[in-house]
């Protein structure tokens, strides 16, 4: 029982330390922002191009982003934007919707999270690993 006690204490220490940092020490400009503004964005996995379009999305910090993910391919893709906890399957020839709040500013990479092969697109060789994009979250209010 003793071991559990120690373990629980350690976990509690980490969590309370984390909470304390989050609410007391975290610099004001890094605290999550939620403005309540909604923004609709559609990202398309182009047919046989191993590319997200648009590959570069710019939004405002605090935006509630309503994501529509369209898969034009007849095989599966995935959409991973791990920093905001997004990890969605994009089934073949389907459209899925998800959402997140861009609470932090910065550039965030998203990527295809389901193996989807490779191929030549207009003379350029592309594959699953090329299928990435960036979401720029701009903090116009803070700066």
């Amino acid at each position: 029982m003793n071991k559990y006690f120690v373990l629980v204490i350690i976990i509690l220490l980490i969590v309370t330390g984390g909470l304390f940092y989050r609410f007391k020490l975290l610099p004001a400009d890094q605290r999550p922002v939620n403005t309540g503004q909604t923004k609709e964005i559609t990202i398309v996995a182009k047919k046989n191009e191993w590319r997200f379009v648009p590959g570069d999305v710019t939004i405002e910090r605090g935006d509630r982003v309503l994501l529509t993910l369209v898969n034009e391919d007849d095989y599966d893709h995935g959409f991973g934007l791990e920093d905001f906890g997004i990890s969605q399957k994009m089934p073949a020839l389907a459209t899925v919707k998800t959402e997140f709040v861009a609470t932090q500013a910065g550039s965030f990479t998203f990527f295809c999270s389901v193996p989807c092969g490779e191929g030549d697109v207009n003379g350029e060789h592309r594959d699953h690993y090329d299928m990435t994009g960036v979401i720029q979250v701009i903090d116009s209010a803070g700066q």
């Binding site: 909470l19 940092y21 989050r22 791990e82 920093d83 905001f84 906890g85 997004i86 709040v101 932090q104």
Partner: peptide
């Protein structure tokens, strides 16, 4: 969640 102040799900 606390350090980088990212969403709970992340």
């Amino acid at each position: 969640v606390f350090g980088a102040a990212l969403p709970f799900s992340a």
